[in-house]
Design a protein around this nucleic acid. Structure first.
Lengths: 187, 187
DNA sequence: TTATTGTTTCAGAAATTTCTGAAAGTTCAG
DNA sequence: CTGAACTTTCAGAAATTTCTGAAACAATAA
């Protein structure tokens, strides 16, 4: 593996972006490297290519492992481990969604639910509860929905993605198809 | 506005969550406060209720303003400004999506596109480009798709959300409806 | 067992992000 | 113009996150 300018810019940028998506810079860089390398890479080489400490690489790989995004392999006669990205880009996106849901949505939903169960002590709290219920419902919808997307087969997902703004049309169609359930009243 | 334990737990939690969604703790707390307060609140009161500095409040409100999430109002005869959350929870979610897209997706897409235009210098770069193209296509799909969701009316969005795992069924249906276009080949 | 080659851990260092508060800026009534 | 009431700015302080590297640990061959 060689760090050409092209590869470097990709890896660094992915590192920056990574920190937005729930993992730190190093983790992002390591993953980027593993994704674009056709050959599995060993930990020392990662540290060297990225110019970071060996310990940092170890922690990054551990994190990626917990996300099930790396595959470990061995070369015959060698003791050290070689790492490679695992699964498709789709899989990776799914992992990110799932991880974020677990870390961000679930605890929030649980807190909001607790608050909704409480008795409002006064008018102010009653209003607050109303708003909190709205937020809860929205987050719950988003959560359930992304989960149902994740359970779709990649082909179906792709169809859905390619549909793009066609989603609107499909919905009009769906309204007739599922119309008897009167979705508006479920709001 | 009174800081009861209920309101406090909501505001603090929202602050923590906020930092995951692209704004810092203070911004999250301020927004939470404005959302659950029926009455507009002035900057000094925000600082007092949250126990943070007046300057910090000013910066937070400025940030929220740039996201178009606050409404400024005045009381007759008073010079100071009163702040209130603006738009529905849906609107707020949309702003967050849009803001994140602008900050995270667009620059990345642009970088990936640049890399895809470059001439691969060797076999390694050629492989890297192939992978980068995959990532680009995925991100572009997600971006376009969320944009098309954002342009849907709230009612339609709600229908779609409530559909949940029904999305699979709709797709089967869609396959027949749009089948002539053979979505599989667009992959 | 010991030497070798590799990985992991974690305390403290470094870097980054966020917050404070005093000073500067703004607006308006008189 | 002046002063009162309010807001914004920004340099440095504080808090938080991330990274390093040396020491501990693990696995294997001889």
């Amino acid at each position: 593996m060689q760090m050409t300018p092209m590869i470097e810019s990709f890896v660094y940028h992915f590192g920056e972006m990574g920190s937005r998506w729930g993992f730190n810079r190093t983790v992002g860089q390591i993953y980027a490297l593993l994704v674009i390398s056709e050959q599995p890479v060993c930990a020392n080489e990662i540290a060297e290519l990225l110019g970071i400490s060996r310990g940092n690489v170890s922690m990054g790989l551990k994190e990626l492992g917990s996300w099930q995004l790396v595959q470990v392999s061995h070369k015959p006669g060698e003791r050290r481990e070689f790492y490679h990205s695992r699964g498709s880009i789709w899989d990776m996106a799914n992992r990110v969604f799932e991880e974020r849901r677990k870390r961000e949505m679930d605890p929030t939903l649980s807190l909001l639910r607790d608050i909704m169960m409480d008795e409002a002590a006064n008018q102010e709290e009653a209003y607050a509860q109303k708003r909190i219920a709205e937020i809860h419902d929205l987050l719950e919808n988003i959560t359930e929905w992304t989960q149902s997307l994740q359970s779709l087969s990649p082909e179906k997902l792709n169809t859905l993605m390619k549909l793009g703004s066609g989603v609107g049309k499909v919905l009009e169609f769906t309204d007739k198809f599922l119309g008897k359930k009167d979705p508006a009243k479920q709001a």
